[in-house]
Amino acid sequence: MQYKSIKRFVGDNSEFIVINNGQTPTMKAQIEAQCNILGVKYYNVEPQLPYSSSPSVSHGMLLQWTFDHIAIHDKNCISCFMDADMFFINKPNFIKDMDKYDVAGVPFSNQHINYLWPNLLFMNIDRLPNKSDMNFMCGYIDGLYVDTGGFLYYWMKNNNNLKVKDISNFHVIESTRNNLHRLPADIRKNYLDEFEFHIIENMILHYSHGSNWNNMGDDYHVRKTELIILFVEGCINGNIMLTDD
């Protein structure tokens, strides 16, 4: 479904690449088989990255491997890191202006430590300064914890002429935030606050917590997945039209 959303809203002038870090031979083979069915390019992470009980560390290692082995070598294109539980629901109109920027992402911070959320990150590779210094790991800086991508702080600090487009129109959909109106009516009537959909720039729908690090039950994910499919497929097929922000 992610692939379908990209083809629908980004278009044929794009390439969808899967990074296959399946944790078992069976899982890795299943990912390969699905990519072959769709005709999608994939890279197997070799050698297998070391296991970490921390999802943030595992995520950071995978992003670093992907950047160092693949993205850094891209030419004449915009490379995008995108979590597997994100789906386009509208055209990314800002992409046409990316020739003016080095990178576009959601700003994160912990006090004075500013960085970009790497889960959705657009990179104009040809423009990136000192790109080999980009570090997607997590940890502590000046005694403050930063999540995956937090070490991008150093790269951003050392390249103060960096042209950054903030993707700041980021909405966690909850009734307590008075933003349920951002959901189409057919989705809103079955929506629960604990689903915590994210709508980003009115172009991306993020399932959120897709790895189930918050330990929700099977029934929760069945109902949430059904609603996500209804939402995304509706946008792809034109049955759901999003209102402008």
Rank of each mutant, 00 (worst) to 15 (best):
D99P: 08
Q111C: 12
R188N: 11
L120S: 00
K157I: 10
V164I: 15
N130Y: 10
R127I: 08
H198C: 10
D186A: 15
K157E: 13
N179C: 03
R188F: 04
R127E: 08
G150A: 04
F136W: 04
V172Q: 08
Y101F: 15
H181P: 02
D193E: 09
N124C: 06
P129C: 07
H206L: 06
L183A: 04
I204K: 01
D133Y: 10
S132N: 13
I204P: 00
A185G: 06
F195V: 05
L180E: 03
E196A: 15
L162H: 03
R188E: 11
D186H: 12
F108Y: 14
K165N: 07
E196F: 14
I173K: 02
I173Y: 06
I187M: 03
D166E: 12
F122I: 02
I113M: 06
Y153E: 02
M134R: 05
F170H: 13
F122M: 02
R188Q: 14
H181L: 11
R177Y: 14
M156L: 11
F170Y: 15
G139L: 07
L152D: 00
V106C: 06
N130R: 11
Y115W: 13
R188P: 02
Q111D: 14
N114Q: 13
F195Y: 15
N158Q: 15
T176M: 15
I173D: 04
I141F: 12
A104K: 01
F170C: 12
R177M: 13
F170W: 15
F195M: 12
V106E: 10
I204R: 02
F195T: 03
N178W: 09
N160H: 13
P129L: 07
L120M: 12
Q111Y: 15
H112M: 10
N130V: 09
K165H: 12
A185C: 06
P107S: 07
E174G: 07
L144Q: 10
W155L: 02
L205D: 01
W155P: 01
F197N: 01
F136L: 02
H181C: 11
G105W: 04
F197S: 03
L120E: 00
N110W: 09
V103H: 04
K131Y: 08
F197C: 04
L180H: 08
I199K: 09
R127T: 09
L192I: 12
Y191T: 06
F195C: 08
N179P: 05
N159Q: 12
H112W: 09
A104I: 02
N158M: 13
V146N: 01
I141H: 05
N169R: 14
L183G: 02
N169S: 14
N202M: 10
E196V: 15
I113A: 05
Y115T: 03
W117N: 09
R182W: 09
I125W: 05
I167L: 12
N159W: 12
H209C: 13
G143A: 07
